[in-house]
Design a protein around this nucleic acid. Structure first.
Lengths: 154, 154
DNA sequence: TGTATTTGACTATCTTCGATACGAATAAGA
DNA sequence: TCTTATTCGTATCGAAGATAGTCAAATACA
């Protein structure tokens, strides 16, 4: 930082400020950087309720549904059933959801009262987060954001 | 952000076809899904040259520069130095880059001839990928995509 | 009805990515 | 010289995602 640093900084070295990241014009690269930055931020916010992004997503998804199985949740969120098991397991251990037998093979994953209370906090956190995210996007681009993203995976 | 006044949403029926993901209107969620989908796709494409996305990014970044240290690369790509070490190590092992002493402490990471040849393949792959990505976005949203994303992290 | 296939939940294990914590060597400053 | 900074690197951890495969229940069908 200090201009007296021993860094050679010879004439051939591009100035740190004058040389923009040449990758920043690549849509895929900016998509990755933006998603990483936003998910890191959301993760920090959600640490307040000791939940990870994927866990919070599950709570948001199953709210108001009482017959969603773990495999249906996995299909909706694109999480393999092998990865759903420990995910649901942790939520069960924490008393946020419970498994209710549907037919002897399938289990419905439903919110407990504690889960509903936590979900309330999750909604508060995510709504603030989503609002802030949109606010950072210049107004003229804002309405194009979600439709453009949805075209990439839906 | 939920549009409570919008569509009746078919009531309580969890119809397999008619039940859209209620999270799909959340900007942060769509950002994550789109980025995951795109990076998985790019990863598949780059497996042709046996490189991961982060490794290809490094090659693209250091091309034409001969005094970039591993810490400068890490700063540019937002990769911790602890994670840079094995990343560079693998590229060195594969003969794509080499470490050149700058001043006895710092090492410049530069492309080898093999690295330049591989970079040529990487450019071909990523250019096709980036073009395809943009093509998937409806034309009226396309020009807003990169500016909106850049507002989130730059 | 009886057999075969599919499905749902789960375990174990592997890979990638990112983050800390720490150690060694060099450079810079008191 | 001694101390502090920085740089590079190690070891290790955690989250997320993927494969392979077990087991039992549900379903399809001859």
């Amino acid at each position: 930082m200090a201009d007296t640093s021993g860094k050679p900084d010879s004439g051939s070295l591009p100035a740190p400020d004058g040389e923009p990241d040449p990758l920043a014009i690549l849509p895929g690269y900016t998509l990755r950087r933006a998603a990483n930055a936003m998910m890191a931020e959301l993760g920090t916010l959600l640490s307040e309720v000791d939940l990870r992004v994927s866990e919070a997503s599950i709570l948001l998804l199953i709210d108001g549904r009482d017959t969603m199985t773990s495999s249906q949740i996995g299909t909706a969120l694109d999480i393999r059933s092998a990865n759903m098991a420990p995910l649901i397991g942790r939520l069960v251990t924490r008393g946020l959801v419970e498994r209710v037998p549907l037919d002897g093979k399938s289990m419905a994953i439903i919110l407990t009262p504690d889960g509903e209370a936590t979900l309330h906090e999750v909604r508060r956190i995510t709504q603030t987060f989503e609002q802030d995210l949109l606010q950072r996007i210049p107004a003229e681009h804002r309405d194009h954001f979600v439709p453009a993203l949805n075209a990439l995976w839906r």
